[in-house]
Design a protein around this nucleic acid. Structure first.
Length: 271
DNA sequence: ATGGTAGGTACCCTA
C-alpha cells in the first residue's frame, strides 16, 4: 500500500500535475491539502478517470480544503471541525487491510499556517495554530484508545527538527520553527506515540525539506527549504514501513505547488 | 532590514 500527501495549492489549477503524479507514483491513497475548492466544484470525474473510485472531500471557497482519493474502499469517513471553526482542515477515512482485524485510520490534516508574527497576543492566526495543535493532541490521545492502527499525514506547517529547516538559528523566530510550535507539535506526537515515518528513513542529522517558498528566485540554488509536510504512523504500523519518497522534482514541474508530494510504502494489502 | 511570488477572488485576503 502506497500512501501520499501533497499540499496541492488549488486542485482545479493543478489537475494536470495530479495526473502526472498518478502516472509517476501510482499511489493507492492520495491525501491533499489546500484544495481551495467547494465540494460541488471539485474535479471528481477527472479523479475517477485517473483511477480513484473512492473519494472523501471537504472543501470551501478560496481557502483550505482537504481530500482523500483512494483505490481502496472506505469503511468509514469523518469530517472534524477544529477549535470551533468549520474551515476544512481535518478529515479521516478508515480502510480494512488483510493484516489487521481493526481498520486502519487515515487522518488528513491541514494545520493553520499561523500568520507572520509568532505572538498570539498580537496575531490571532498564531493563537489559532497553537490551539489547533493542542486540540489535536487531546483528540488523538482519546482516539488512540480504539486500538486502531493510525496514520496522520498532511501539511502540519511546523518543521520540528534542527535539520527540517535550512538554518535552525535563523528560523528560531520564524513561524513554523519557533520553540513554542515545536513544543506543541511534540506534545501532539507524544499523545499517541506517533512515529515520524519520514525520519524513520532519513537520519535526523540529514537536511530534509518538503516546501520551498515561491519568493526565491531559484528555489534549488538557494535551497532554503523546510519540512512542513509529515507522515506519522502508530507503533503497530512501523514494522510494515518499506519505503518512502519526497518528490523534490515536482517543485520544478510547470506551475508547481510550493509543497512537493511526500509518500510512504507499507506492506499491507487491502482486505 | 527588506521584499520577494503565487492562488483565489473581487480590489485584498492567505500562504
Amino acid at each position: 500500500m502506497r500512501i501520499l500527501t501533497w499540499n496541492i495549492n488549488s486542485v482545479r489549477l493543478r489537475m494536470p500535475l495530479l495526473k502526472k503524479l498518478v502516472r509517476e507514483c501510482a499511489p493507492d491513497m492520495i491525501c491533499l491539502q489546500e484544495t481551495k475548492t467547494p465540494d460541488d466544484l471539485f474535479p471528481l470525474r477527472d479523479v475517477e478517470k485517473a483511477g480513484y473510485a473512492y473519494t472523501h472531500i471537504h472543501g470551501m471557497k478560496s481557502y483550505n480544503g482537504v481530500a482523500i482519493l483512494s483505490k481502496i474502499p472506505f469503511t468509514t469517513t469523518e469530517i472534524h471541525h477544529r477549535v470551533g471553526r468549520e474551515d476544512c482542515r481535518h478529515i479521516a477515512a478508515h480502510v480494512q487491510v488483510a493484516e489487521f482485524k481493526k481498520p486502519v485510520q487515515i487522518h488528513c490534516l491541514y494545520i493553520p499556517a499561523g500568520g507572520d508574527v509568532p505572538d498570539r497576543t498580537v496575531n490571532d492566526k498564531f493563537g489559532h495554530k497553537l490551539d489547533f495543535v493542542d486540540e489535536m493532541a487531546g483528540w488523538f490521545a482519546k482516539e488512540g484508545k480504539s486500538g486502531d492502527p493510525m496514520i496522520a499525514l498532511g501539511d502540519f506547517n511546523i518543521a520540528p527538527l534542527e535539520h527540517d529547516v535550512w538554518s535552525h538559528k535563523q528560523l528560531l523566530d520564524v513561524v513554523s520553527h519557533t520553540p513554542v510550535e515545536v513544543e506543541k507539535l511534540t506534545a501532539m506526537q507524544d499523545s499517541l506515540k506517533w512515529h515520524d515515518a519520514i525520519r524513520h528513513f532519513v537520519p535526523d542529522d540529514q537536511k530534509c525539506y518538503t516546501w520551498w517558498s515561491y519568493r526565491n528566485r531559484d528555489w534549488k540554488k538557494s535551497n532554503r527549504g523546510r519540512r512542513l509536510d509529515h507522515i506519522w504512523v502508530t507503533k503497530t504500523l512501523v514494522p510494515h514501513l518499506t519505503g518512502h519518497d519526497i518528490l523534490a522534482a515536482a517543485r520544478d514541474w510547470e506551475k508547481p505547488s510550493d509543497h512537493v508530494p511526500v509518500m510512504i510504502d507499507l506492506d499491507l494489502k487491502a482486505a
